[in-house]
Computed example of a mutant assay.
Amino acid sequence: MIFTHEMKNNALVVRLTGDLIGENNSAAVVEVVTEAIQQKVKNCIVDISGLRYINSSGIGLLITILTKFRNKGGEVYLMKPSESVQKLLVITKLNAIFQIIQSEDEVLKS
C-alpha cells in the first residue's frame, strides 16, 4: 500500500492505493492520524478509490482511524470505494459504521 496525506480546510485527507493488507506503513498512517488529532483536526477523509483489496488487517486500520477520530468528537469518511471494496464494506456491515462519500466537497463545504 502507498499512502499520501494533506490538510484541506482543517480536514485530514489520506489517500490509500494498492492493497490494504496491514503492511509496515500502517503504523505511519496511524501516526499521521494521531498528529492531526493532536492539532484539533475533527474530520478525516480516507480516499480509498485506489484500493484493489482490503484484508482483515486493513479493516483493522480503518477502524483504528475511525475510533481515534470519534473518541475526540470527529468523523471519518471513506471516499469512492471501488466496487469490490464496496461489496466488502456491505458484507462486513462497515458501510453502516463509516460514512461513504463520493467527493471531498461533501465534507469540505460543510
Rank of each mutant, 00 (worst) to 15 (best):
I63Y: 09
I45V: 09
G60F: 09
D47I: 11
E75S: 11
I45C: 02
L78R: 13
N43A: 02
R70W: 00
I59S: 01
G73L: 10
K68W: 02
L51K: 04
V76S: 00
V76Q: 06
N55G: 08
Y53H: 10
K72Q: 14
I63K: 13
N55D: 15
L51A: 04
K68I: 15
I63G: 12
I65Q: 01
I65V: 11
E75G: 03
F69E: 04
T64L: 03
I48Y: 08
I54N: 08
C44E: 03
K72N: 15
K42D: 02
N71W: 08
F69R: 01
T67E: 12
S57I: 02
D47A: 07
Y53E: 05
Y53A: 13
L78V: 14
L78C: 10
I65W: 00
I54Q: 04
K72P: 05
I45W: 00
L51H: 09
K72R: 12
I54M: 07
V76K: 03
S56N: 13
G60W: 09
G73M: 00
S56F: 09
F69M: 04
I48F: 01
V76C: 03
G60K: 02
K68Y: 08
L51Q: 11
I65K: 08
L62T: 10
T67A: 05
L61S: 15
Y53K: 11
I48S: 03
Y53S: 05
L66Y: 14
T64W: 08
G58W: 08
T64H: 03
N43Q: 11
V76M: 00
V46S: 08
L66T: 02
S49L: 12
G73V: 07
G60D: 09
L51W: 09
K42S: 12
V76I: 09
L51T: 07
G58N: 11
Y53F: 13
G60L: 10
T67H: 10
D47K: 01
G73A: 13
N43T: 10
N71R: 10
I54F: 01
L78K: 13
L78Y: 09
G74W: 03
I48N: 06
L66H: 11
E75T: 09
E75V: 06
F69C: 05
S56T: 03
N71T: 15
G58A: 04
G74D: 04
L62D: 01
G73R: 05
C44T: 11
S57W: 04
N71I: 15
G58D: 12
K72E: 14
R52W: 14
S49G: 15
N43I: 00
S49D: 12
I65A: 01
I63D: 14
I45H: 00
V76D: 06
D47S: 04
L61A: 05
C44I: 00
I65F: 05
I59M: 02
E75P: 03
D47E: 01
S49V: 12
N43S: 06
L51V: 08
I54S: 07
I63N: 11
L66G: 10
